[in-house]
């Protein structure tokens, strides 16, 4: 117990008071609906991590603390996210991921491992915010045959394992799905690929 107290005291001594006071000045409480949703999600995560046997009160306090601290960065939980579209989006990504794995596995196990590799630059058409572009950069790695090399200014450098003409359309479709998840308006033709 004393060891923990001395560790805590050392931590407090090393705290940069200027940074802490600046952090506290910038702090604003999140709106009630967002706070309640976050507390519910974090409490649920606590329940899952402790396999339902952890202290409920401790989980609730921790969830509340994290929910109150998290909104300092406004980009963490975008308000415009369409949660109802999330199951459909997860289904789309699971299907993509399975196809991607099958294509790579087929290529790896083929007699002559002749991959037609290419690099391409993909320009974002719908996603303008950095969090949305970052999400797409991550998800490109799970779609068939593509890997993000670099996220640039409104562009993605992409490595293609086995080039096929429909890769571009596949990336556009992924972008339109992410745009739909964020509630961004876009032309309906982009879904037709």
């Amino acid at each position: 117990m004393w060891r923990y107290c001395s560790l805590l005291a050392q931590l407090v001594m090393h705290l940069d008071t200027f940074r802490v006071s600046r952090w506290l000045k910038r702090w604003r409480p999140p709106p009630w609906p967002a706070l309640l949703l976050r507390v519910a999600v974090y409490s649920g995560l606590w329940w899952v991590i402790t396999e339902g046997s952890g202290s409920g009160w401790l989980g609730l306090v921790l969830a509340l603390l994290i929910a109150l601290c998290a909104p300092l960065n406004v980009a963490t939980w975008p308000q415009q996210l369409r949660w109802r579209r999330l199951p459909l989006f997860i289904g789309f990504m699971l299907k993509n991921s399975l196809f991607g794995a099958l294509i790579v596995a087929q290529l790896a196990l083929s007699r002559r491992c002749s991959a037609n590799t290419h690099t391409r630059t993909y320009r974002f058409r719908l996603l303008k915010g950095h969090p949305q572009q970052l999400l797409m950069a991550n998800l490109v790695n799970l779609t068939p045959g593509t890997l993000t090399l670099r996220l640039g200014c409104d562009t993605l450098s992409i490595h293609i394992l086995h080039y096929q003409p429909q890769i571009e359309a596949q990336l556009m479709m992924l972008e339109s799905h992410i745009a739909a998840l964020y509630g961004l308006d876009h032309e309906p033709w982009e879904y037709e690929y």
């Binding site: 991921s97 399975l98 991607g100 794995a101 790896a108 991959a115 790695n141 890997l147 490595h159």
Partner: peptide, 16 residues
Amino acid sequence: PDVYTRLHALTKVDNV
């Protein structure tokens, strides 16, 4: 043959 193609194998097939 190279690190980029190997990453395809690691990210996609392993995860599934």
